[in-house]
Amino acid sequence: MLNPLLLDYQWFGVLWLEENNQPIIIGYWFSKVKSGITQQAIHAGFSKWTEISDQPTIVTMYQSIRNKQQKQDWENRTRLSIRTIFKSPWKEASSGLYILKSRDKYPLHASAVHKKKFFIWLEHSALCETEEELQAFIKQVNEEHQDELVHKKTALLMK
């Protein structure tokens, strides 16, 4: 599975409890080797579990975690440090909404950054494994911020 922090495909392990026939995820880990998952679970204080290697179950758990992360990445808006506006490349950039990629190859992190006169905001971020996912992110950003973009164009035309 894709480790979203390292942008690398690694072994994935998840620990969950079943309550009312519903899984409750209590921990998950990534590792370069399968045994690393077990070691991390033990280090986290877990000593007993039943190993399940059922691929569809594991993929469902992974997808549940990723969906929550994607929602959080989209909704968490953060103002960057005030010093950021005085550093390159933001010092030279004009006000506006920018889409940034963490690197040129996939998978990558994409961010929607809004530079205003005195502040820079991280509006949204996403983990993109393909060009299609990146384009979907850009489309979603454009839809979400259409009013701001249209408003800015109107203000420019009125000058």
Rank of each mutant, 00 (worst) to 15 (best):
Q69T: 10
Q69W: 07
Q69R: 15
W74L: 01
E75D: 12
N76Q: 09
R77K: 11
L80T: 03
S81E: 05
S81C: 08
S81W: 11
I82M: 10
I82C: 02
I82S: 13
R83Q: 11
T84H: 06
K87R: 14
S88M: 03
S88F: 10
K91N: 10
K91G: 01
A93S: 10
A93F: 08
S95Q: 11
S95M: 14
G96E: 01
L97E: 02
Y98E: 07
Y98G: 03
L100N: 08
S102F: 01
D104E: 10
D104N: 13
Y106S: 04
L108W: 02
A110C: 15
A110F: 00
H114C: 12
H114P: 00
K115R: 15
K116C: 08
K116W: 04
F119K: 07
W121V: 05
L122A: 05
E123C: 09
E123Q: 13
E123N: 10
H124F: 07
L127Y: 01
C128R: 01
C128S: 08
E129F: 03
E132K: 09
E133F: 06
L134G: 05
L134I: 09
Q135D: 10
Q135F: 01
Q135W: 03
A136L: 06
I138F: 00
I138R: 01
K139I: 00
Q140C: 03
V141N: 05
V141M: 08
N142Q: 15
E144H: 13
E144Y: 09
Q146G: 06
D147F: 13
H151R: 11
H151L: 04
K152D: 05
